[in-house]
């Protein structure tokens, strides 16, 4: 494990499996009457959110609190950032208050990478989503969800996702979730197919370790998991697709399409869902849809990442304790 978590592409197979296995242990904490571990007592983590995000911030906050870390929440709105303060000054100001880790969400692709590599601060940096680049903890929680559902909670321990066929559908061009998932799922041995209208696939996708299809119906029968990405309605104003209805007809997942999937296959969504656009209510509310589970799993994954990066007291993960002498 590296000192920071910036991109899913930085994780080796063993790193990723270790995080997933650790997350299973963390998940057991949630089943206890007192959902708390003393692991990060005395550590301070700042959630530095330059972009509105309710669920990711709350998920990180829950993870941090369950590990007994001290948590500072910083949102750009109404802060010195809105008065023109630079990312560098904001980060240095926070670090001067004694922060061990920075969880950052930023609208600019690469902002967490800059924070981790420019010598501005010493704290560990965890990317909670940057622009249209990466969202590694989302990819990890998705892989965790797939492993549990497709292999099994206990049977999955130590396992990767070799041979699993994962289909990701929607606005790949603007999606950090898609990028992170392609990287991580490939590392874990899964076969990934991206499905989108050609306008929503980036030029240059040819080098990605995945297939690209424009035809959802032909891919569904060969999928173990189908991940639907949110499609913003405003995209049609920039001519990415003609109308909401046409998008929905060609790339939306409804009950009829879901029936084409193998019986064991699951439907995933990183949220927030746009019901009626990329997914119908019938599918979203079906028991094959894991969207609520993904949220719960997100807390376990983030606990695992924080634990491994910040070095807990348990000896189980000594290879991750690289941040101790900082």
């Amino acid at each position: 494990m590296q000192r920071h978590l910036i991109s899913a592409a930085d994780l080796t197979r063993d790193d990723a499996v270790l995080i997933l296995d650790t997350a299973e242990e963390m998940a057991r904490v949630a089943d206890r009457p007192i959902k708390k571990l003393p692991t990060l007592r005395g550590r301070t983590i700042v959630n530095l959110f330059f972009e509105d995000s309710t669920r990711t911030r709350i998920s990180f906050e829950a993870a941090e609190k369950r590990l007994s870390a001290d948590v500072i929440n910083f949102t750009a709105k109404g802060s010195s950032v809105s008065k023109g303060e630079s990312l560098k000054d904001t980060a240095q100001t926070l670090e001067a208050m004694g922060v061990d880790a920075v969880v950052i969400r930023h609208g600019a692709s690469g902002a967490p990478y800059r924070l981790a590599n420019s010598g501005w601060i010493d704290a560990a940096v965890i990317n909670a989503g940057d622009g249209t680049h990466q969202h590694p903890t989302q990819a990890l929680l998705d892989a965790f969800t797939m492993r549990r559902r497709l292999i099994g909670r206990d049977a999955g321990l130590g396992q990767d996702l070799s041979g699993k066929r994962i289909t990701i559908v929607g606005d790949v061009l603007h999606s950090r979730v898609a990028r992170s998932n392609v990287d991580l799922l490939h590392t874990l041995g899964a076969e990934v197919t991206l499905v989108a209208p050609p306008t929503l696939v980036p030029v240059g996708v040819g080098t990605w370790p995945c297939e690209v299809s424009y035809d959802l119906d032909s891919v569904l029968p060969k999928s173990d998991a189908v991940m639907m990405l949110r499609v913003q309605r405003e995209r049609m104003n920039a001519a990415f697709f003609p109308t909401e209805r046409e998008y929905s007809r060609r790339y939306g997942l409804d009950g009829e399409r879901m029936a084409k999937m193998p019986g064991h296959a699951i439907v995933m969504h990183p949220g927030p869902m746009v019901r009626g656009m990329e997914i119908t209510a019938e599918v979203a509310d079906s028991d094959r849809c894991t969207v609520v589970e993904q949220v719960a799993n997100g807390v376990s994954i983030r606990m695992a990442v924080l634990y491994l990066l910040l070095g807990g007291n348990e000896p189980a993960v000594t290879n991750a304790r690289t941040n101790e002498e900082k």
């Binding site: 680049h133 980036p202 030029v203 990605w208």
Partner: peptide, 14 residues
């Protein structure tokens, strides 16, 4: 705009 922009998630200048 190309292979690198696709990976980095930066807007492409074709």
């Amino acid at each position: 705009e190309g292979i690198v922009s696709a990976e980095l998630g930066l807007g492409g200048w074709p």
